[in-house]
């Protein structure tokens, strides 16, 4: 084949430019830390990258949701804990009033404390988390109970606030006050008396009348309230448990998916540097040979 000067030059330029394209590719990879800069560099990696980004973003949001859920449920749980203590104390006092040989003054003191306990119960029923009433169902902007123990709002047992903590995985984080403060009646209507508070009211009137039989039978009611409370607590505990498990899993998922994301799109630095070095060597070699090939011609030797 006849080789002409321009062929040599064109070929050399073409090869040099090819070398530079490859060098630039590895340079870009190292500079950006990413395997690809455009979807066309590798559509599969690009499409996976989009999916994994969404996954990671979702997991992070679900994590935030579980944190919020836990905070809400922690407050609820500690409020319920206070209520349990409160019932225990009420039982103790009622027991004392029902059995002992109490002076009028003692009964009076017990009654005073019972009144105190009742108002404490009402204020626990109106407990808030970040300014929201936790037992008010969906009406988080309104307190559940009035000072006299009647309901301030209508609450239905179905008013369960649900947080999404996984794809299609909703968990209700609240305890509707109707479930807690009305033991036998389903739901709560504004203006009606809470059964829970009513038990306290009955004890207080029995104390006023010093009706020991009545007090004994009311002890049974207190037990029922306690059982109801424990039922609610048990269900809340189970849900808290689930949120905790989910939070742990989300933590793992986050690490796994972030790792997958990195594996998918981040460049292996060692490999990229090696490739770059390699290309650089080839580039230098082609420059060196190019310079040798295109410079001399017969002209240089016709002296």
């Amino acid at each position: 084949m006849r080789i002409t000067n321009n062929m040599l030059i064109n070929n050399m330029m073409q090869n040099l430019s090819n070398n530079l394209v490859k060098t630039q590719k590895y340079f870009n990879q190292l500079a950006s830390g990413k395997k690809i800069s455009l979807p066309s560099d590798d559509p599969i990696v690009a499409s996976k990258a989009l999916k994994l980004r969404t996954d990671v973003a979702e997991i992070n949001q679900y994590k935030r949701n579980t944190d919020d859920a836990m905070a809400w449920m922690d407050i609820t749980e500690s409020t319920l804990n206070h209520m349990t203590d409160l019932i225990h104390r009420a039982k103790e006092l009622t027991n004392q009033a029902a059995n002992g040989t109490n002076t009028d003054e003692d009964v009076f003191k017990i009654r005073e404390e019972m009144v105190e306990l009742k108002s404490q119960l009402i204020s626990l029923g109106n407990a808030t988390y970040a300014g929201r009433y936790i037992f008010s169902g969906y009406k988080t902007d309104k307190p559940l109970l009035n000072d006299d123990g009647t309901f301030n709002i209508n609450v239905d047992n179905s008013e369960q606030i649900k947080f999404e903590i996984g794809i299609g995985d909703n968990i209700n984080i609240n305890v509707p006050g109707s479930d807690l403060f009305n033991r036998t009646i389903t739901g709560a209507t504004a203006g009606s008396k809470s059964e829970f508070v009513d038990t306290f009211d009955k004890i207080i009137s029995a104390l006023e009348a010093d009706d020991k039989d009545q007090l004994s039978s009311l002890l049974g009611d207190l037990d029922d309230e306690l059982n109801n409370l424990l039922r609610v607590r048990a269900s809340l505990g189970a849900r808290m448990n689930r949120v905790e498990l989910t939070a742990g899993r989300l933590e793992d998922d986050n690490i796994n998916f972030t790792r997958l994301m990195s594996k998918n799109e981040d460049v292996d630095i060692a490999e990229a540097i090696m490739n770059l070095q390699n290309e650089e060597n080839v580039y230098r070699a082609s420059l060196a040979t190019g310079a040798r090939v295109i410079q001399p011609s017969l002209l240089d030797f016709l002296k």
């Binding site: 455009l38 979807p39 066309s40 590798d42 559509p43 599969i44 690009a46 499409s47 989009l50 999916k51």
Partner: peptide, 18 residues
């Protein structure tokens, strides 16, 4: 998200092909 992913990956495949 799948919708956009499909658009972008089909665009990537086109680009690669070109």
């Amino acid at each position: 998200e799948d919708f956009i992913k499909t658009v972008i990956s089909s665009m990537g495949v086109d680009g690669q092909q070109y």
